[in-house]
Amino acid sequence: MNPVSPCLPNADPWLAHTVRIASITDEIQDVATYRLEFVDAAIADEFSFLPGQFNMLYLPGVGEAAISISSDPQQRGVLDHTVRVAGNVTGELARLNAGATFGLRGPFGSAWPIDECVGGDVVIVTGGIGLAPLRPAIHELLNRRDECGQLTLLYGAREPSGLLYTNEFDDWRQRGFDVAVTVDRGTDAWKGNVGVVPQLLDRMPLENPEQTTVLCCGPEVMMWFAARSALGRGVPAERIWVSLERNMNCAIGLCGHCQFGPSFICKDGPVLRYDQVAPLLRVEGF
């Protein structure tokens, strides 16, 4: 079973809460992190989330977008969303300034299985904006560093300018995360690794594969090959987790858009166990 939302489902799941943009941090081109605060203090006190969950950000008159939460779940009162401009809602969000208000419904969806991670090694395999939904998991694992074995982050992007949170890597390293970074295409200035992310997994030593948990988020093809690599290295399929993306409209399993075979990505996912979704991942148009 996936971890479920720590919050009781909203009495009215359609009611958005008003949030205000506390600050905006530009990350990379077309990507910014929005720190949000609830206007209603009671909601702010009540709100908590699990790593991997998402909120529906609602810009009245424009629509809603499902955006994963990117901040540390233990840091109460801090609610960050790292958003890439990809459509109408995210485009409009990018035009807002600190102080602007809009709506938020959430948190929704399943979470990264942190309780199953602790006690063993963890390898996070991710690419591009896929690091955003894993950042809370990185924080949570670092919060529980003493309970974990080896912690490794394998992260890739198309080019160096597509790498997120690079100014945080040193902090994560100091606190106990091995961070390996790669890009598909190098630049003259890039002295780091060139190649795809699954290759980093192929070559990394896995001392206790059967006690290793792999958390993946990125393009489905990348996750598929990362999982193949992990399986080939002896990681059990039930210890590999992926975060999937589908069109999300309601976020509460009532609108039908995000179905992926038996799963509603919004409420059964987005974080799902690899062996439960693997058979459908390479079926075209499903």
């Binding site: 890439r84 690419g127 992007a157 597509g162 598909d184 795809v196 990348m222």
Partner: peptide, 12 residues
Amino acid sequence: LQLLDLFAHESA
């Protein structure tokens, strides 16, 4: 995988 350019949609 490199040829597939999987992050192309993330690049401006």
